[in-house]
Design a protein around this nucleic acid. Structure first.
Lengths: 325, 325
DNA sequence: TCCTCGTATTTACTCGAGTAACCTAGGACG
DNA sequence: CGTCCTAGGTTACTCGAGTAAATACGAGGA
């Protein structure tokens, strides 16, 4: 079927060992220029590609890093996060495998992940039920958690994907003179319950300090239209869970004949492409994952070298001012 | 590090072979109930999990099926397609790995995919540049293409993800009495150029047969607001590339003071969750991937057994009538 | 008693690659 | 001239599992 190193050795008239030494540039080994060239040429002509399974088996670890994605609506943020991590890991010889499969049974899920035999698993604390992660860890696969060494796991997850960005929404609205703000969040936030609670108290504290009235309304995407139709008192501004929420809010407000941003300002989160295309264009917040991804790559290497991993930084934010707020 | 079958053998006081026979229920092999129980108990106590790399190496193929995702906006359709395929493949012992990584260099991309050492690669013709797929195929990894045996690849891809659904949009609008229809498609359709051309002529033929005026406008998502603002003649109805497009169209039309669906009807495609949440709720079309996924799983098994794979069916459509059309 | 048959288990080889340890010329040096 | 070193190879073992072939041990039959 596929061409093996033995095939190359035979064709080049040398032993398998020599082939391996040449192709891997084995340090402290001398190979005559003549046989070296012969091996390289034959390998190229035959289209030899080392068998990843065999190499990984011998080495004790594979070159893949698994990034299991949570069962949330796939969005632009995750896409760019994945792209950033892929790009950061590639030059270090790791292939990021972002996996979207979901199994109800944690054991089955762990089996599925183990089939990939990843060198490490990335856990950016996007998962609610970490049971499957516990199981892969039990299999000896290092799970790289986004938690800082001296933090509880839930603390960092809040920083990376929830808290700072949401507080920034509020700061922006407050700075622009809005005095009654309504924040629309889903019934169940896609973070650890403790992070969620922390977020809510931090937000209220921020509003209180600025003398602003903040009402947090828990609505799922499907309930937004009905929820807004029933508003009797209107806020100055609305901050939403993400851009999808914001767009649903905008269409519902427009349906009530309200002008955006003049009557009510709306700010989203995540910078989805659609936010740029709706009318009025959506003001939102984007995360910059390039630096974060480099830190992830460093951490992967550290963990695999059994060294203590440095803390993952909080990705920097960027406020994208468009027309809705 | 991790516990191997040798560890189990030692602890159970038997040979590795016996352990393997017991755990794999080797057919035509008899093992005394006593040692069988002992092995099973020890394996459980030690938490033995076979090394996926070693097993796959011996067997000549892994248990993973790789599904490389195109660099298009991740949407609900892909999510449900992936879920369906995951569910269909799991009971047959395959783990679907959906990969979102993207490398500019086809060789690097092929390397990344090969690192996973998948048993097969799923190619649902969502990719523009198949060069990386050609490279993995050259490595001896079977690439399962959505094309039917007697078809050009582009023909099926059109059926599965583009043509039928788009024609259905038109049929619905025509059946509901609309006489001037505008179809908004991106400048570059995420399918093979030939599929794209075929789609356009099919759509025009359908409209002509019904005596309906169909104008196809090529706009990217970001250009929709400006495009619609410049319309001088208004159509009865608008059919769009997908739900994101439809929502952008709706907000632009509402901005012009037009009522939906009374002044203009809008129909989307893909049944994104946001479509349910906007006002008015978006009429759209959804694909049902359950049957399709089973066919994919069958095809994977057939290909790996070196049998001719049956044709992949066209996923059935479901029109979801809400308020916008 | 010897041979056969069946069960229960082990030995030994395999997958494809990496690598420590071992050979073999040829040259330098005492 | 014998010894030692070194460049340039090869042999043989390893990773962890699967499995064909060989073996050990009774029981049953002639």
């Amino acid at each position: 079927m596929s061409v093996t190193s033995a095939d190359v050795a035979r064709a080049a008239g040398v032993s398998r060992a020599t082939v391996s030494y040449v192709l891997n540039d084995a340090p402290g080994r001398t190979v005559s220029a003549q046989t070296r060239d012969a091996v390289l040429r034959v390998a190229r002509d035959l289209g030899y590609q080392p068998n990843a399974l065999a190499r990984s088996l011998k080495r004790g670890r594979s070159n893949t890093v698994l990034f299991p994605l949570p069962r949330i609506e796939m969005n632009h943020v995750l896409s760019s996060l994945i792209d950033a991590c892929t790009t950061a890991l590639a030059p270090r010889g790791f292939a990021l495998v972002s996996d979207m499969s979901h199994h109800a049974d944690p054991a089955v899920q762990a089996d599925a992940w183990a089939e990939v035999a990843p060198a490490a698993v990335l856990d950016l604390n996007l998962h609610h039920d970490d049971e499957a992660l516990v199981l892969v860890r039990a299999r000896g696969i290092p799970v790289l958690s986004a938690a800082l060494p001296d933090q509880q796991p839930w603390e960092t997850s809040g920083d990376i994907f929830a808290r700072e960005q949401r507080l920034e929404q509020l700061r922006y609205l407050i700075d622009h003179g809005h005095r009654t703000i309504r924040s629309i969040l889903p019934k169940e936030l896609p973070v650890d319950p403790r992070t969620a609670r922390q977020l809510l108290t931090d937000a209220q504290a921020l509003a209180a300090a600025a003398g602003v009235r903040l009402e947090i309304e828990r609505l799922d995407l499907a309930d937004i239209a009905a929820g807004i139709a029933s508003w009797s008192v209107l806020p100055d501004a609305v901050a939403t869970h993400n851009d999808s929420y914001a767009i649903a809010v905008m269409t519902a407000l427009q349906h009530r004949g309200l002008g955006i941003p003049d009557d009510i300002a709306v700010i989203g989160l995540d910078d989805e492409p659609l936010g740029r295309a709706v009318t009025p264009a959506l003001t939102t917040i984007a995360g910059d994952f390039a630096g974060f991804a480099t830190a992830v790559a460093d951490a992967v290497e550290a963990v695999l070298a059994h060294q203590p991993a440095a803390a993952l930084p909080v990705p920097p934010l960027r406020l994208i001012k468009r027309d809705s707020a």
